[in-house]
Design a protein around this nucleic acid. Sequence first.
DNA 1: GCCTGGTCTCTACCC
DNA 2: ACGGGTAGAGACCAGGCG
Length: 771
Amino acid sequence: MWGIDGEGRRVLVIERSFVMYFYLVLKSQEDPKTVLGRIHQQASEMPFLGQIELTVKRFFGREVQAIKVSCLDPDFVPQCAKALSGIEGVEKCLEDDFRYSMRYLIDSGVTPCSWHRADVEEADRDVKAQVDDVYIAKTVPARMEEKGAPPPFRTISFFPVYHASRGAPKPETDPVVIISTITNTGETRRFKASNLDDRSLMESFVEYVRGFDPDVIVGFETNRRHLQFLTARARKLGLKLSIDRVNAEPHQSVYGHVSITGRAGMDMLDMADELQEVKVKTIENVAAFLGVKRLDEQVMIDETDFASYWDDLEKRTQLLRYAAEKTECLLGIFESMFPYASQLSRLVGLPLDQIGRVAVGFRIEWYLIREAFRIGEIVPERVERPYIPYAGGMVLAPKPGVHENIAVLDFKSMYPNIMIEKNVSPDTYIPPSVSKLPTEVNIAPVVGHKFLKEPAGFYKRVLSDLIAFRDQIRARMKELDQQSSEYRLLDARQQAVKVITNAAYGYAGWIGARWFEKPVAEATAAWGREMIINAIQAAEELGLNVVYGDTDSIFVEREPERIETLSSMIKRELGLEIRPDKVYERILFTEAKKRYCGLLPNGNLEIVGLEVVRGDWANVARTTQERILELILKEQSPGKALEFVQQFIVQLRQRKVPYRDLIIWKTLTKPVAEYEVNAPHVAAARKLENEGWALTVGDKVGYIITQGSGKLYERAKPYMLTSYEEVDAEYYVANQVVPAALRILSMFGVREADVTASAPSKKPGTLAEFF
DNA sequence: GCCTGGTCTCTACCC
DNA sequence: ACGGGTAGAGACCAGGCG
């Protein structure tokens, strides 16, 4: 275990006593002692086996007889498990697929990003590691709950620039010409190649990192790209990228993250996955969103131009400055996201350098695995299942038009609370074949699934604990100064708890989940639909007009007294809390579900689902629609909105809008070769591949529609391979700006011809006039 | 061969 | 590689028509 002690010394603590194990669950009708005898017999011929003992555990809530088999060499667990699982009387083999390090963390209770106390002794001198002290643990490290603040880390962020004359840089042929770094102690460095010779750059970069001895190495796209590239490039030069604490190289590890032994490699691109609002994940966009730094468009350089900037000595300075800006942004992004990342790591129990990379489903699963261990439940195996869809939440058709003074009532944590209230869990599920008294079970509406009322199921226990934990954190926060570091830490902690709580329902319906039981998710959703239907009915009986609703919310006229009555009725009769979440002074619905725009009391617009918030529309369409919504909802003037669009279209046709506002971004959701139809972004991706760029799933393709004939996809070109002269302005008028504008303006009787005409015949007036 | 309407593919959103 | 519900654009294709 790599850590920092109370005096700020970097330490390596070695645990030598922990022994790996797995379980053999016995068939219920077998005599456990007989099976144990058979296992002993078989085991005597096998190496590496340690203790073999009979034990009582729980599996899906039922008591089971199990044999715990210890295995002295962790690498032989799969082999031992396979050999013993075929023995007569053994039902199945479980928990044989854990990594040694995770098994240790779970069993010991050692948690990443937390303080622990351990009794230690000095280790032998033969351990080569770049730390102040190496110890052997004499006791299992015990978590210290009371000590919260993290130790002062040394952090470095870096950004590399490669030189490729064509397409994606390749370590075999293309040098790294710049590595820019900055540390949290304020040191900046720019390692430069000598023209195209990067040997001394590589050497001095490695030397510098080792000298600074960071605890955290921050980068962007490091897991998927830069660490592999730099490692391979160093090798090509006959060097070693030994930036870790054991004089080895960064290496590929679990969940596709790259491990730097003894340090935490943090890829801020992985962390940025959490930021749904950032549509195109670049360092600049993430930094701007987090309020870290706003880079001027003028200083930004596309990667396609890196080589030419390097080759031109005058432009090289700009490139160097730009690389330095990137590392500054990165350090700021890290500082902004670290509290959340570390609290998530601590809550889930996965190491800090893995937490950003690991999929949401697995985060929850590791949390559940820790909880299962705590209560003596054996963890189910991963099984492949067919995908069978089921019905989810209910969405109401909105009442189109503009409404004034609308309150949004939300069910508080609807799905988690249903799962608690109805004890919905894989271990409380009663299949149709099993008969129970109606008083013993909760029966889900419509779908009819049954769940035992008692005892409390696994999900109920876990979710109740999480909700109680969050309430407790928030109670402590109330006593603190909002600027204090403790407050910020607790805020990040409650955020992590919330995320895990809210994702439990999705996890329960995921066929890849170890604790999957389709009726669990299906019943939860069915109860959810019942709740909202009842809420709507109750609201209407109270004379509250319901204008919209989605899954766990209803939008009603704001009448505080009746809302108060409604909320206490729902609390009493449904057992769930519904509360006024927010108020819109004015809100606009079209006929579409999941798309609306509301004006908040603070004067801000909240835009939901519309083109403005979608990443796959050109900025010209998004910003135009946003302005229209402002003019309509704030100034209540569809007339001004129409005038604005007309003028904007004139500008667009005269090519007076920035080129970047014409780029359409779309994500590749599969390998380019696997697409069945010729979508524009796929055609643009093919062009990039022809230019030597390697594209993978998840990459964003930015394209421009150019003039010419034929299908649209034949006119889509990557934006960096296109010039403004080629742009088909009419496409952007007809297929971007006009549809986005009319989505709103058609509600006020505006038609396409009104928008595109430069001299309009008639204008709509005010909202009041219109209605 | 051209036009039309319906269906399918694809993406990104909401909660 | 967490769930289902939904909107919307554009490709694709069969069928009608001249």
